[in-house]
Simulated assay, not measured.
Amino acid sequence: MNSDNSIPSAKKDNVLNIGVEQNFDYFFRQYYVALCFFANSIIHNDEDAKDIVQDCFIKFWSNDIVNEKVDIVKSFLYTMVRNRCIDYTRKQKTITKTKSILLKSEEEFEHFDELVFAEMMRQIFDQIEELPETMKTILKKYYFEGKKYKEIAAEMNTTPDAVRMQKTRAIKILKQKLPPHIGLLLMFLLQNLGQ
């Protein structure tokens, strides 16, 4: 056996031909710690970094890439963890900005409870994730990344009017799916995040 804990028949540029479960186990043992360190270097939160890496391995388990070449899998894992860390960072920035907006409007939310706020934000994020892919992408780019209609249209190969229409439809769907009190919070947040 090689000193790097690789499987005897596995070379860095070859496919592991030992079965899906053994392949997964091999990659988990090889890269879990390094991926956690990598994720933590991006988001600076050890526990959340571990959660992100575990989520990526769950997705990896259900993906056919588990039978690909070692270098391809390694690249896939690092890219997936990096992308999840970027999403995590964007969500954290949005939550921080939202809290700041609410603190500025303290008289409107005088007795606002952190737990209630967290639960309401979770419900909003969950509903955004359930939107059709185009609407979800447009909302994230507009509100979370701060992009303008023209930028989004160029990235998505469409017109600014189509982007605006999809954003409007997405908000309408969210308002219909969310309870009224959370819908009001959503409207307040979107109005302030879109500025």
Rank of each mutant, 00 (worst) to 15 (best):
118 A>C: 07
44 H>R: 11
51 D>V: 08
21 E>H: 07
117 F>K: 06
22 Q>A: 14
180 P>L: 12
83 N>A: 08
65 I>C: 05
129 E>K: 09
145 E>V: 09
17 N>S: 13
12 K>T: 14
68 E>V: 00
124 I>F: 06
54 Q>Y: 14
37 F>W: 06
123 Q>M: 14
187 M>F: 10
117 F>N: 03
152 I>G: 00
87 D>W: 07
84 R>H: 09
156 M>W: 03
71 D>P: 00
147 K>F: 10
174 L>W: 00
157 N>M: 11
27 F>D: 01
30 Q>P: 05
186 L>E: 04
34 A>E: 07
124 I>K: 02
183 G>S: 11
160 P>R: 03
4 D>N: 15
51 D>A: 12
25 D>E: 14
162 A>S: 10
77 L>V: 03
66 V>C: 05
22 Q>I: 06
72 I>S: 03
41 S>A: 14
44 H>T: 08
92 Q>D: 10
178 L>S: 02
78 Y>V: 02
25 D>K: 15
8 P>Q: 12
72 I>V: 08
130 E>V: 11
75 S>A: 15
17 N>M: 12
153 A>D: 04
101 I>T: 07
56 C>T: 07
75 S>M: 10
31 Y>P: 00
127 Q>K: 09
33 V>N: 10
31 Y>L: 06
50 K>N: 07
23 N>M: 01
2 N>I: 11
52 I>Q: 01
136 K>Y: 01
2 N>G: 11
18 I>E: 08
24 F>L: 15
65 I>Y: 02
177 K>W: 05
72 I>K: 01
84 R>M: 03
118 A>W: 04
1 M>E: 14
109 F>Q: 05
86 I>Y: 08
2 N>F: 13
161 D>T: 12
76 F>S: 01
168 T>N: 10
147 K>C: 09
134 T>E: 10
168 T>P: 02
44 H>M: 11
135 M>K: 09
129 E>C: 05
51 D>T: 13
79 T>G: 07
37 F>D: 11
59 K>W: 04
143 Y>K: 02
183 G>P: 05
153 A>N: 04
64 D>E: 15
8 P>Y: 11
182 I>A: 06
74 K>A: 04
1 M>F: 12
82 R>V: 03
144 F>A: 07
90 R>F: 10
23 N>H: 00
11 K>F: 14
19 G>Y: 02
3 S>F: 14
98 T>Q: 06
127 Q>V: 03
76 F>P: 01
64 D>I: 06
94 T>Q: 09
128 I>S: 01
121 M>V: 12
113 D>R: 11
132 P>T: 01
191 Q>Y: 12
3 S>Y: 13
69 K>M: 04
114 E>A: 12
55 D>C: 10
113 D>I: 10
